[in-house]
Design a protein around this nucleic acid. Structure first.
Length: 588
RNA sequence: GGGGGUGUAGCUCAACUGGUUAGAGUACCGGACUGUCGAUCCGGUGGUUGCGGGUUCGAGUCCCGUCACCCUCGCCA
């Protein structure tokens, strides 16, 4: 090693010792006769002092040092003179009195300094990612990620899980997300697809008898990005044989308890709370509700049906709902203009017709421009239903069930943030269970799988497959942390006949099923054990545990929202020769 | 595909309703300084106001188009 210690290591115990440090020049303070350099590596910072005692040659070279130069300094560890200690620095009681300096590498003037307070634009950070990754917050995020994955691997190893790698080059399955395709040179005109998840492979592993499988697996989905979504992401993927939903959830409960304990010092109460999908939609309008705060939805469709207010009555009479929420004590917080903004939000983002509102006056009466459209008794019933108290603000949306869910869930999330209804440091873990098997696709006019087509229905719902698929519930469970879907899983179908029946319901005819999933259908006929599993988004977990608000901040080399890499310039055009070899011609 | 935000010096930002030569901090360059730690002090360099077009006597500012980045709806089995 070129160094004897790291830049975060030296303490008063080392006083008098010779030491050699290597690192980057974080800052330098040149006083002509004496010169200070804060030398930085990922372990910390140490002050190096160059003075006439360092020798004229060394001092002269030190004067040429600039930000981000890489140097090796040898010297004596010394106590700082009284009164010059730096309490903000772990190494602040000592300094290295330089005797020898070697410039290992110079740096161009960096576009930004990793130690600076002001953060450059994210564009600049991504363009010069190697500089950004030198920043302490990024190094902490990378370290947190490393520690989390280490804990995960240890945990599953203790439980007897086997880590098996599955292929990155697989078969395209147009169901679900768009695939990233990889052309085959050997078979021109054909393509591999990068995995959206190792779903089918892990089921095959169960059939192969591996019993408990785990993998930290890279996955790819060619869909539009979000603050918590990358085209390339990492899943904790696992599968178990001979299990029921509770068995999988118990394993994850244990993992979450360990991660929360080891990484955050939080003790989780197990089992984690479990709520059905129906209850979540009823109470929060969302299948991944943020349960750090209440603000539950209230249904007043029955009142709306009788009231003269046309907007409400029409919604109620056409099978829709009128629901709303009570922003406690928020009437003064939102002016007319503020409410207009909320209205614009639900209208533009969720397609609501509008946002009805009431402010609760000092007498507990509902006041609003639309109040005249209601009879006093109806207003009183609504006030009671919302538990309206003076100073409250009631916000209501009328429309089809799923629209009221989406709009009010969005509104609830927004109000939770704007009204500081929760402590940002708080963590809430819960399960949402018993999802519907199918969702009806209005455009295509048919059933689609809510999770994926290999999901097993609840045994008691089997008759519903034929009679009323919409009511059929799956053996499915999602882990929700702070309103973020951290992962989801299901018990799988292990019976060929049932699998074929589900395919039929989804409009996947026998021939297509055979083409795409024939290998699975075949494998199911060779002694498939009952099995199920789950996949958790590791990037999201790191984001949540690190209290980051952006998934890019916990990925070393992330993509932009347009799925490009600003550092490498990927994706890029390729040589005509490469295309020719693959039998591909670009049409544009 | 839709909605919104941002784009001015290497970086972070400013520039009232359109009006003189587009400013500040920082970085950078030069000078001074032997105990600083966001060092300080003096001086200096640095601009295609993302790009293209238009309106106007005059555009960083207004209009149209376009590009990039971010947030979001759709999408993400």
């Amino acid at each position: 090693m070129l160094r004897t210690h790291t830049c975060g290591e030296l303490r008063t115990d080392h006083i008098g010792q010779q030491a050699t440090l290597c690192g980057w020049v974080d800052t330098y303070r040149d006083h002509s006769g004496i010169l200070f350099v804060d030398l930085r590596d990922r372990y910390g910072k140490t002050q190096v002092v160059f003075s006439p005692q360092s020798g004229p040659q060394t001092l002269a070279v030190a004067k040429t040092l600039r930000a981000e130069y890489v140097i090796a300094v040898t010297g004596t560890v010394a106590a700082r003179p009284e009164g010059t200690e730096n309490r903000n620095l772990a190494t602040g009681r000592i300094e290295l009195r330089a005797e020898k300096l070697e410039v290992l590498n110079r740096s161009r003037t960096p576009p930004f300094q990793p130690g600076a307070k002001e953060l450059p634009s994210e564009e600049t950070r991504l363009r010069y990612r190697y500089l950004d990754l030198r920043r302490q917050p990024m190094q902490e995020a990378m370290l947190l990620r490393h520690r989390m994955i280490k804990l995960i691997r240890d945990y599953f190893d203790e439980l007897g899980f086997v880590d098996v790698e599955t292929p990155m080059l697989g078969r395209s399955t147009p169901e679900g997300a768009r695939d990233y395709l990889v052309p085959s040179r050997v078979h021109p005109g054909t393509f591999f697809a990068l995995p959206q998840s190792p779903q089918l492979y892990k089921q095959i592993l169960m059939i192969a008898g591996y019993d408990r499988y785990v993998q930290v697996a890279r996955c790819f989905r060619d869909e539009d990005l979000r603050a918590d979504r990358q085209p390339e992401f990492t899943q904790l993927d696992l599968e178990m044989s001979f299990v029921q939903p509770g068995d999988v959830m118990d394993v994850i409960d244990g993992l979450m308890a360990r991660l929360a304990g080891q990484l955050l010092g939080l003790e989780l109460q197990l089992p984690l709370p479990r709520m059905t999908y129906d209850e979540a939609m009823q109470r929060y309008g969302h299948d991944a509700p943020d349960l750090r705060f209440g603000l539950e939805l209230v249904d007043v469709t029955d009142v709306a049906r009788e009231c003269p207010f046309q907007v409400f009555r029409a919604a109620a009479e056409s099978g829709g709902r009128v629901r709303g929420l009570n922003a406690k004590a928020a009437a003064s917080r939102y002016s007319r203009k503020g409410i207009d903004e909320l209205t614009q939000y639900v209208v533009e983002d969720f397609g609501a017709q509008g946002l009805a509102w009431f402010k609760v006056d000092a007498e507990g009466q509902l006041a609003s421009p639309i109040a005249k459209n209601f009879e006093p008794g109806q207003l009183a019933r609504m006030a009671q239903r919302f538990d309206a108290r003076p100073g409250d603000l009631l916000l209501l949306v009328a429309g089809p069930w799923d629209l009221t869910c989406r709009a009010l869930a969005g509104l609830r999330r927004r109000l939770g943030r704007e009204l500081n209804l929760y402590d940002p440091k708080q963590m809430h873990f819960s399960w949402i269970v018993e999802f519907p098997m199918f969702a009806y696709d209005e455009q295509q006019g048919g059933w689609t799988a809510m999770h994926h087509p290999f999901t097993a229905p609840r045994p008691q719902d089997l008759p519903l497959l034929k009679d009323d698929p919409g009511k059929c519930r799956a053996q499915a469970y999602d882990l929700v942390i702070n309103g973020v879907e951290a992962g989801g899983g299901t018990i799988r179908i292990h019976d060929t006949d049932l699998q074929q029946e589900v395919f039929r319901l989804l409009g996947i005819d026998a021939q297509r099923a055979q083409e795409r999933f024939g290998f699975l259908l075949e494998a199911l006929q060779y002694g498939a054990p009952p099995h199920g599993g789950i996949a958790l988004g590791i990037d999201r977990l790191v984001m949540l545990f690190g209290r980051l608000d952006n998934i890019r901040d916990c990925i070393a080399f992330p993509k932009t929202q347009r799925a490009t890499d600003l550092m490498t310039g990927a994706p890029s055009e390729v040589d005509v020769a490469q295309l020719k070899e693959l039998g591909i011609r670009i049409d544009r």
